[in-house]
Amino acid sequence: MARPRAAALTEASLAHWPLPDPGPDGDKEARGQVLVIAGSAELPGAALLAGTAALRAGAGKLAIASPASIAPGLALAIPESRVIALPETRGGGIAARGCEALAPLAEKVAAVVIGPGLRDERGSMAFVRRLLPLFRGCTVLLDSIAMSVATQRAFDQPVLLTPHAGEMAHLSGLPKEAVAHDALAVACEAAMRWNACVVLKGASTVIATPQHRAWCFKGGSLGLATSGSGDVLAGLMGGFAARGLRPEHAAAWAVVVHAKAGKNLGRRVGPLGYLARELAAEVPGLIRQFAR
């Protein structure tokens, strides 16, 4: 088999995939709704980071579904969002029966982000397996332990997976060193095997599709390797997907904008020490800059 090749992903690349224009009279419905299913008692902030990023990417509406124990706090922390409290497993995850509360949203949302900050891998897998068929008509992004369902099935609906090297090692059974050594080949093989768009994150990030297309982004910075940064990236992808971009194009916009936000903060704050929560505020201005 021929060795896979990847196109370079740069800021200029985004001009090939312009964001849909809602028009001067477009309301929030025209920019799509995002459902973020995230958080746990230990990591409630992950839901906040992902949800805020989705709105900063320009999504029109946001709903957050989280374990019942943290839902009231999230509702206060992000008043722009509807917050749905879901039943919890004994391990602190979301119980599969929680899908019943989310089913009415299936015809309303354009993108779903599942996984930031979730706990209880086994319980979360049961929840995700039940949820996926309900949201067949939109882009679903699986992050963190929600990606574990990929070990059991290939997908038959639009799905984004966002592993870093360690997570890809867990999902694929390969040593972490092997993943890092040949990220392009690993991502391309995984995309075909799982029938999903795979965003393999790292110093260089690879985006691969089951249709044998791939891009490589090398514009990251050390400061982005910080707690919560991946949650922001997942939320950005969900926001761009809700606005109407294909999964791989939503991923490309998110990766480039996320990196540029980090560089902006690196110049103002310092190359290390800026916080993931500060990234999202950079996004609207960057979208305006790139959209030109």
Rank of each mutant, 00 (worst) to 15 (best):
A38F: 08
A54V: 04
L55N: 06
A77M: 06
L48R: 02
A110D: 11
L102Q: 01
G23W: 10
C99M: 05
A65N: 03
I70G: 04
A38I: 05
P87Y: 06
P104V: 10
L14S: 10
A75M: 04
T89G: 11
I37R: 05
A111C: 13
A41P: 01
A15K: 14
V83S: 04
G51S: 11
C99S: 05
P24C: 06
P22Y: 12
R31F: 11
V34D: 00
L9F: 07
I78H: 04
P44K: 13
A8Q: 13
A47Q: 08
A8D: 15
A53L: 08
G26A: 06
P22K: 09
G91H: 03
R56K: 15
L76Q: 13
A95F: 03
L48K: 01
T10I: 07
R90T: 12
T89R: 05
G26H: 09
R90G: 14
G98S: 03
E29G: 12
S13E: 10
P24M: 12
A71W: 05
G91E: 03
I37C: 08
V34Y: 02
L14M: 10
V109C: 10
T10L: 14
K28D: 05
E11S: 12
A65E: 08
V109G: 04
V34N: 03
I78L: 15
A77Q: 02
K61W: 03
L48N: 00
R82W: 10
L49P: 04
R82G: 07
S13G: 06
V112Q: 06
K61M: 15
P67G: 13
A106N: 08
A54H: 03
G39Y: 01
